[in-house]
Simulated assay, not measured.
Amino acid sequence: MSFTKVCTVDDLWEGEMEAFTVDGHEVLLVCAEGGEIKAFQGICPHQDIALVEGKFDGKKLICRAHLWQFDASSGQGINPDDCALATYPVRLDGDDVYVSTEGIEPLFAHS
């Protein structure tokens, strides 16, 4: 599995999110409560809206368009609960944040 350097830990504080293009994938990095960095698909599975335009409270991501909510620790849908975000592996090397997109495609849900 190959990893691509995306940013440093100083670029993403606890409770923040930031979008990056990694190997042609729109990836959303979030720093959840407790400081864990997670990487998810950067678009809402509902209607292709950039999730970085929504809200993040440290625990859940909320899409701006229709207020779909996702758990920031797992990517699982909260409202509605029958959808999810694709999750990308994250690796930290010192202060550098790396993400792998190999073999992972964004998920799409009902409309």
Rank of each mutant, 00 (worst) to 15 (best):
L28N: 00
I78S: 06
V9Q: 14
D96N: 12
D95A: 09
L28F: 00
Q41N: 10
E18S: 12
E14T: 13
A50C: 02
Y88M: 03
V9E: 15
A39I: 07
C31S: 15
W13E: 07
L51M: 02
C83A: 05
E16G: 04
H110P: 01
K38Y: 01
G94V: 07
F40E: 02
E102H: 10
D10S: 13
T4N: 10
E18I: 03
V9W: 01
L12H: 05
A65Y: 15
D71P: 12
E26R: 08
D57I: 06
V97E: 11
F40T: 01
D57N: 14
G24P: 08
F3G: 06
G15N: 09
D11M: 01
A109T: 13
F108G: 07
Y88G: 01
L29W: 07
A19F: 02
A84M: 07
F70N: 08
F70S: 09
Q76P: 01
T21Y: 02
V52K: 01
D82E: 08
A72H: 08
G24L: 00
S74G: 13
Q76S: 13
F56P: 04
H110R: 08
S73F: 14
V90N: 03
Y88K: 02
K5Y: 06
F3A: 07
W68K: 02
V22C: 05
A109R: 11
K38D: 02
G58L: 06
D81C: 10
P89M: 02
Q47C: 11
E36V: 15
Y88F: 10
M17H: 12
S73N: 09
G94Q: 06
T4Q: 14
P80A: 15
L61E: 05
S74R: 10
V99A: 12
D48P: 04
V22H: 08
I62D: 07
G94A: 04
C44A: 07
I104T: 06
I43M: 14
A19G: 13
F108M: 11
P106N: 13
G103Q: 08
K55H: 08
F3V: 07
K38E: 04
V99I: 12
E53L: 13
A19C: 07
D82W: 15
A72Q: 10
N79Q: 15
W13Q: 13
D23Q: 15
S74N: 09
P45L: 06
H25D: 09
L67N: 15
V9K: 14
H110C: 10
D96T: 02
D82R: 12
F108Q: 12
Q41K: 12
V9G: 03
C83I: 09
D81W: 01
M1V: 11
V90A: 02
A39D: 09
C63W: 12
D71H: 06
S74D: 08
A86Q: 04
D81T: 05
G42R: 00
E102S: 12
K55P: 00
G103P: 03
H46L: 09
T101F: 05
L67C: 12
T21G: 02
V6R: 00
T21W: 07
D48A: 14
P89Y: 04
Q47F: 07
F20A: 04
E53Y: 05
I104M: 00
I49A: 14
K5N: 09
D71V: 06
C31K: 13
S111Q: 12
Q41F: 11
A65F: 14
R91V: 04
E33R: 13
A39E: 09
G103C: 05
K55Y: 05
K38F: 03
D57K: 05
T4Y: 11
P80F: 14
I62Y: 02
A84I: 03
